[in-house]
Simulated assay, not measured.
Amino acid sequence: MSGTGVLVVVDDNEAVRATVAMLGGSVGLDVVEFASVRQMDEGLPRDVRGCLLLDMRLPGLSGIPAIHHVASNYPGLVIMVFSGHADARTVVRALRAGAVDFFDKPFSNQELLEAVQAAIAGQAEAPWHGRPAVTADLSVLMRTLTRKQRTIVEMYRAGLGERTIAAKLDLHPRSVQRHLQNAVERLGVPEETLRGMQDGDAEGQ
């Protein structure tokens, strides 16, 4: 395994592991695959450096405890998680546990690959001092919303009123209110504070 160019994927879905291996290999990364955290512990050196893609639902050690385990035992790995069944609260917990990014399944191959490359490049450019500090990024939480909810929230944060948003999206104002309320509940922040929030402000709300 070479320097900072190691991509580790832990997922019990063989098709997901194959996709990640193909993506990593396409840009010259060494890719190591495991079906569980236990297999990872048995086959991966603790001083490895690189990026880990960790599924949130695994046989054996899984979810937030798995993130804590990896963060404690593999300080040279930047942790990213993905799941097909996570809400905003789970995303916040994952970020606070030590993950730096979250991806829904099915994920965008390009978006995932760019995030992995950025994480590995960041390690190569800076001296190794262990895992960087993590804050819950609103932009990551926004990915848990539906496309329509995300659009309405972005317009609301830009300062547009509900009636203006309704007119621009050809929706009834009550529909905008409902979508906004549902989005606010998923993000876990009060509606009155949402308009002034910037990326990175979600933690602690």
Rank of each mutant, 00 (worst) to 15 (best):
E154C: 06
E42M: 10
F82W: 09
L77G: 00
L187H: 13
D201S: 03
K148L: 12
R186N: 15
E125Y: 09
S62N: 12
I67A: 04
L180I: 08
V91W: 06
G161K: 03
E192P: 00
R174K: 11
E125N: 14
H68D: 12
R178V: 04
D47G: 12
L187G: 12
Q39T: 05
A94N: 09
N109A: 10
A88E: 09
L194K: 10
M155I: 05
T135K: 03
E191K: 14
L95Y: 13
S139M: 15
D104S: 10
E185Y: 12
Q39L: 08
R195Y: 04
H69I: 10
V100A: 06
I120C: 08
L169W: 05
P132R: 11
T151G: 01
P132E: 13
Q149T: 10
L169F: 06
G188V: 06
E192W: 10
D55E: 08
G159I: 13
T193V: 14
K148T: 04
D12M: 02
D41F: 07
E33F: 03
L180W: 12
L112Y: 12
E14H: 12
A115H: 14
L44Q: 01
A94L: 12
I152C: 08
V92M: 12
A126Y: 06
D11P: 01
V32P: 00
T4F: 02
P65R: 03
D201Q: 09
V32G: 02
L112N: 11
G188E: 08
L29Q: 06
L61T: 09
L95I: 15
K148M: 07
Q117A: 02
I165E: 05
R46E: 03
M142Q: 15
P127H: 02
A94H: 03
R96V: 10
L141C: 15
V9C: 03
G50M: 08
I64T: 07
G161E: 15
S2K: 13
F34L: 06
L53F: 11
